[in-house]
Write a protein that binds this DNA or RNA. Structure first.
Lengths: 199, 199
DNA sequence: ATCTTTGTACTGACTGGTCAGTTTAAAGAG
DNA sequence: CTCTTTAAACTGACCAGTCAGTACAAAGAT
């Protein structure tokens, strides 16, 4: 099964279709939510026949699962790439900026994440998110604790979730309310809130 | 007649009915989301006929709007009550704790908020949330800025959203993953993240 | 006291529409 | 030939909203 997918992927056609369907689905689900988005609408926006969606993804749920997995992996990669800096706290700043930038580019996915990731149906995707994207934050915070940059007894998992949720919320509000404000200003506010530079 | 008497005994007034429907709706929508929750299911869980829901709330949307407004007002009141402390930063801590406690008690509403508040359909509710609940955070932060407790040029609106989103995310994760951990530990982690006590 | 009316709350069977998923026949591409 | 896509019709389940009717308390009316 995997072999066949890889082979056909190299051929190009199938991958294009999947990409188009992905993009259409993300946009529509971001606008209306998963349950309120119809497969007919996705197919229409993707410029593809309805049957093609089922041929490629099996079901609406299968499509969304593939979508989540793909997007979460992209997000995790972006955060991981941003994880650089002299100190661990510098790295934290960079990862926050990386997350802001990612959601600046993939705002629809930000809304999908916020709206859908808590549903028990997508438990698998949540687990992936936790170990990949949230894992990057946890790793940075653990390093900071080891270096004595933050209190060693800080609850790393909770803190990682806190920072992630904070940035996610702000990124969505940014796009909705202040789309023209420079990203750096938003980033500076978060950094000030985050460690001591607040006063 | 026996049947009549039983009915009379079971019969409640309008407030009771609305209350029952409210509770059922919050629970179900928290579990499955607005779009995936059927009025039939709400009526069944409330122990009420389907028609009663429409009689009392006009439409599924009307029910949800009433629900959002009521819950947001309760949240805003809780945050407002928690807004006390010697310094503005102490007040910030208290409000964070107030929000954690509120969502500890109304966890279902926390998930509803996270999942639904960004949809354009509920724009009115979002506006209410912004001016009431988020307004409490903004007010605290403005006071802190005026007192020189934080940098005067901090972007108050963004910071308010950031803190609110942070606490909301953490509160949901807490209930899902660490329901038995003392609330104070979660609160301490957030406070450390929030101002300088991090190191 | 007993009957009649009125307003309010509630009921549940029913309707009209929507939507995921299927089927089919045909066609394009490697 | 096999894989992929298309268009269009179709099925069957599901669901928001409706409506005719019931239950009953309170307020006259006789």
């Amino acid at each position: 099964m995997t072999e066949r997918n890889e082979r056909t992927a190299r051929r190009g056609n199938r991958q294009d279709t999947r990409q188009k369907v992905f993009r259409a689905a993300v946009e529509l689900i971001a606008e209306h939510g998963y349950a309120a988005t119809t497969v007919d609408a996705i197919a229409e926006r993707a410029g593809v026949a309805k049957g093609t969606v089922f041929y490629n993804f099996g079901s609406k749920e299968g499509l969304f699962e593939a979508l989540l997995e793909h997007s979460i992996n992209m997000l995790a990669e972006a955060l991981s790439d941003a994880d650089t800096g002299k100190s661990a706290l510098d790295a934290l700043d960079s990862v926050v900026l990386g997350q802001l930038r990612f959601f600046e580019e993939h705002g629809a996915f930000a809304r999908v994440l916020l709206a859908e990731m808590w549903r028990t149906v997508w438990q698998e995707a949540v687990a992936l998110l936790r170990q990949s994207a949230l894992g990057v934050y946890a790793s940075v915070l653990r390093r900071a604790a080891a270096n004595g940059e933050i209190r060693a007894d800080l609850d790393v998992e909770t803190a990682a979730t806190a920072v992630f949720g904070m940035v996610l919320t702000v990124a969505i509000e940014r796009r909705a309310l202040y789309p023209d404000r420079p990203l750096e200003r938003t980033h500076a506010t978060l950094v000030e809130l985050l460690h001591g530079r607040i006063n």
